[in-house]
């Protein structure tokens, strides 16, 4: 069931088009990710939904209600900011209570709500700490709790993990996913990090130049990109022109091929007619933990191949000849 519906959202700033007719539907309980390079309009779109900026045209419906003309506080939306935006002079509890106090709730009700939310983000013992006493990850969890405590109907997350270091980012990502599942809250997360998008998003909208290039599930975006931009932006697939791919498999070919490095298999597999053998030379070999990344050359074309490693299995070294096979049904063509 559609929970949030955007139609024809448009916005320009002078001669610059910031949002160019955005249509998007987000289902109830969905974690939707807006992914794109900086300047693609993803943050502006999020801020339009929140009501922090006013688009020139378009309609926004949340739970069946038109909200595009409402004040941010009346939209029923919670938001987590990139740099936390915690109130520095207040304790965690006061940060959470500040919004609730505006609703003239009884003190006991406020305290109960805060305790519940603090438990969800596992910060019960930090209720009386001030923001400066918390780590980055804890601050971001407080920011999340502050948005959750108002029981919004939609949660917006603006690059919530980008200010954290890698280890904490990974942990908080899992936790974010858990909390989103637990609360069943419809959420939109903005990021420029494809790993984050692929691991968090039920569906992903890849944005490019003020438009949505593709909206689909993670695997579909990854394996079946809608256009060249999405193909280049997600993963590090080999993108071979029709001519290059034709030379590689020794046939005439008329479309661009998108082939992920792990789709190439090393070694002759079978005499299956649908699989093409390519004799290539290893140019570079880079073992990296569980995978080894090769750069190979065949018919003057350079391409990347990725293979699994094992403790006692030697990998190919640079300079060796190898047969790699490709099954075109594993590739994607544009």
């Amino acid at each position: 069931m559609t929970h949030l519906d955007l139609s024809a959202i448009g916005m320009r700033y002078g001669d610059n088009v910031i949002l160019d007719g955005i249509d998007l539907s987000v289902a109830q309980g969905e974690m939707h990710v807006l992914l794109g390079p900086s300047g693609c309009g993803k943050t502006t779109l999020l801020r339009s939904i929140a009501g922090l900026v006013q688009p020139d045209r378009g309609a926004i419906h949340l739970a069946g209600r038109a909200i595009e003309k409402l004040h941010p506080k009346d939209r029923g939306i919670g938001m987590v900011f990139q740099h936390y935006a915690l109130f520095p002079n207040m304790t965690v509890r006061q940060n959470l209570a500040f919004g609730l106090e505006q609703r003239r709730l009884a003190r006991r009700v406020i305290d109960d709500k805060i305790d519940t939310v603090l438990e969800i983000v596992s910060l019960q013992d930090k209720a009386d700490a001030r923001p400066r006493q918390l780590s980055g990850g804890q601050k971001q969890r407080v920011a999340l709790a502050r948005a959750l405590v108002l029981e919004p109907s939609l949660l917006l997350l603006d690059e919530p993990l980008s200010a954290l270091d890698a280890q904490i980012r990974k942990r908080l990502r899992d936790e974010l996913k858990r909390i989103q599942r637990q609360t069943g809250l419809t959420s939109i997360l903005v990021t420029h990090d494809q790993d984050e998008a692929l691991s968090l998003g039920d569906r992903i909208s890849v944005m490019n130049k003020s438009r949505i290039a593709q909206t689909a599930s993670g695997p579909e975006i990854f394996y079946r990109p809608a256009d060249l931009f999405v193909a280049k932006f997600i993963g590090n697939a080999n993108i071979l022109t029709s001519d290059e791919f034709g030379r590689l498999i020794g046939r005439e070919f008329d479309r661009t091929a998108v082939i992920h490095p792990h789709m190439f298999k090393i070694g002759k597999t079978s005499s299956d007619n649908s699989v093409f053998d390519i004799s290539a030379r290893v140019v570079e070999a880079g073992p990296a933990g569980n995978v080894v990344r090769y750069v190979m050359r065949a018919s003057g074309i350079i391409f990347n191949v990725e293979a699994q490693t094992a403790m006692n299995a030697a990998h190919l070294v640079a300079g060796t000849e190898a047969i790699v096979t490709i099954d075109p049904s594993n590739a994607h063509f544009l």
């Binding site: 009501g51 922090l52 941010p72 506080k73 939306i77 938001m79 935006a85 505006q102 609703r103």
Partner: peptide
């Protein structure tokens, strides 16, 4: 200020 606006402050 933006965080405040969303919280109704």
């Amino acid at each position: 200020l933006e965080a405040g606006r969303l919280l109704g402050i």
